[in-house]
């Protein structure tokens, strides 16, 4: 019974990890950039949801109506104003610029929101459902649903719309895409906007599930990167499985060693199969 409980907990966490990684995977696969500031953007989303929910006295999930568009615009602006420019100089300067962004953001959040631990509470935060001897937190189910819906919408967008197709085409061949009338820079900006919109969702999940600090971005970045690595870049089904793997690693390691187990898993994966489990 305990094993089943553990596996279920792992699956429930997997959704959060998948949505944490999906934005990074997109940027990795489409813009060919490792965004070292992704963790900070997730935490920014977490602050947005937590503080807005407190200020307005509404359910944190409702704050997505505000945080998603805001983060989308931030992402577009960032790509247009900064990263597109730096990418002309090569991939290494672009990597270092996102590194610079991450430290700027981290300290800016520290200044703005102090070093206090934060947590977004909701009415259902401590409701536990008992199903056949297994305890499942209602919150975990809600978070899993939010994550899966986000990934489903993203998949539909990428497969069924002109804009989505143009994003996939750009990721396959930028020149051929521009011959079809696609502006590569604009596509990159939209992709970054979408990636940050998913960061807003991931931030909400993290704010509801755990306490977070202005400095929490780094460890979430590494998990997000792990999801990219295990899932294979740009692969959404891979992202889901990778999220599950990290969820289980977290559960197996427990409160003290969860992160360590995840890191070791990631290092092994990087050494053995850096191109990911799901790429050819």
């Amino acid at each position: 019974m305990q094993v089943i409980q553990l596996i279920i907990n792992g699956i429930l966490l997997g959704g959060i990890y998948a949505v944490l990684g999906v934005g990074m995977t997109m940027i990795f696969g489409i813009v060919k950039l490792t965004n070292l500031a992704h963790g900070e953007f997730v935490i920014l989303g977490a602050y947005g949801s937590t503080l807005l929910a407190q200020a307005l006295g509404v359910d944190p999930i409702l704050t997505l109506i505000v945080t998603i568009p805001c983060m989308f615009l931030i992402g577009m602006g960032l790509q247009t104003g900064l990263i597109n420019r730096v990418m002309l100089k090569g991939s290494e300067p672009a990597l270092l610029v996102t590194f610079g962004l991450s430290i700027i953001l981290q300290d800016a959040m520290l200044l703005l929101f102090t070093a206090d631990a934060r947590h977004a509470g909701a009415a259902y935060s401590s409701t536990i459902l008992k199903i056949g001897g297994i305890n499942i937190a209602l919150l975990d189910i809600i978070l899993l649903v939010i994550s899966l819906v986000t990934i489903l919408i993203l998949t539909m967008f990428l497969n069924k719309t002109y804009m989505g197709r143009s994003i996939r085409a750009t990721s396959d061949d930028t020149q051929a895409a521009s011959l079809m009338g696609v502006s590569v820079k604009k596509t990159y900006a939209i992709a970054m906007g979408i990636a940050l919109a998913t960061a807003a969702v991931a931030g909400l999940c993290i704010g509801l599930k755990w306490t977070f600090y202005a400095s929490s971005g780094g460890s979430y970045l590494l998990i997000a990167f792990g999801v990219v690595v295990i899932g294979g870049m740009g692969s959404i089904p891979g992202t889901l499985v990778a999220g599950l793997v990290f969820g289980l690693a977290q559960v197996i390691g427990g409160a003290n060693y969860g992160l360590l187990v995840s890191y070791i898993l990631l290092i092994i994966m990087l050494a053995v199969r850096p191109q990911g489990l799901f790429s050819k």
Binding site: G218, L222, L266
Partner: peptide, 9 residues
Amino acid sequence: IATWVVAEA
């Protein structure tokens, strides 16, 4: 990233 992960681990 791997070097960073090692440090964090």
